[in-house]
Amino acid sequence: MLEIKNLHVKLEEEDKQILKGVDLTVDAGKVHAIMGPNGSGKSTLSYVLSGRDGYDVTEGTATLDGEDLLEMEPEERAAAGVFLAFQYPVEIPGVGNMIFLRTAVNAQRKARGQGELSATDFLKEVRAKAKALKIDAEMLKRPVNVGFSGGEKKRNEILQMAMLEPKMCILDETDSGLDVDAMKLVAEGVNALRDEGRGFLVITHYQRLLDHIKPDVVHIMAEGRIVKSGGPELALEVEHNGYADILAEVN
């Protein structure tokens, strides 16, 4: 499904190499977690995959089901099935959450050659999915993320993910700023979307999210590379010993 080969990325503005040869394959139906210390390039990887400006890919490839992601505009990547749950979801005053969601769903359907969802069908679906995430009708009416608490913002990301039904879900530190209950709610939302056709890349600092979203593979990222991969036990090792041991071992 998602195949990243030897990906090198530098910041456009400064001559600073952030990713220095990332290799990663996420198969459909699998959950991969990426852990790593601050500044290791985890968030950059998520931005590069979703097409944010400001990064130069100097070497390597990233494909989704064989399609070259790096050649696509962000909206084309979204239509192809990439979804990034933002670490800091953006507040957009003046744009209603519901209108935003509907525009996004229909834009993707259009890009894929499907007909638009009728207002009634859309409403039905969004209400059901919002309810599961304990998002009330009031929140749906408000402008996108404006005045939302940290937890509400993250739940809103998961709601978008549920509505857009992407193939490849990238979660960038979705656990940051969440209390235990909120994290459980978000994790349940994510788990409900797990299925054979869908891959997940879960970026996190802490093992605790992985208690709720059980990964198939855990990668450790450091200095722009994936330095170690393993099963869920790798996350526990990090939790107990920090990154120092692993980094020392790799070096």
């Binding site: 979703s50 097409g51 944010r52 400006d53 505009e73 962000p74 909206e75 990547r77 979204a78 239509a79 979804f83 990034l84 933002f86 979801p89 953006v90 957009i92 005053p93 003046g94 744009v95 209108i99 935003f100 525009t103 996004a104 769903v105 834009a107 993707q108 890009a111 402008p143 978008q160 857009l164």
Partner: peptide, 26 residues
Amino acid sequence: TALFYLRSRGVPTREATDMLTLAFLA
């Protein structure tokens, strides 16, 4: 940032720009 957020959800640039423009005028 807002433009990228909208585009990352599949809203084409032009439509996303219009949404933000209308929001600005709101």
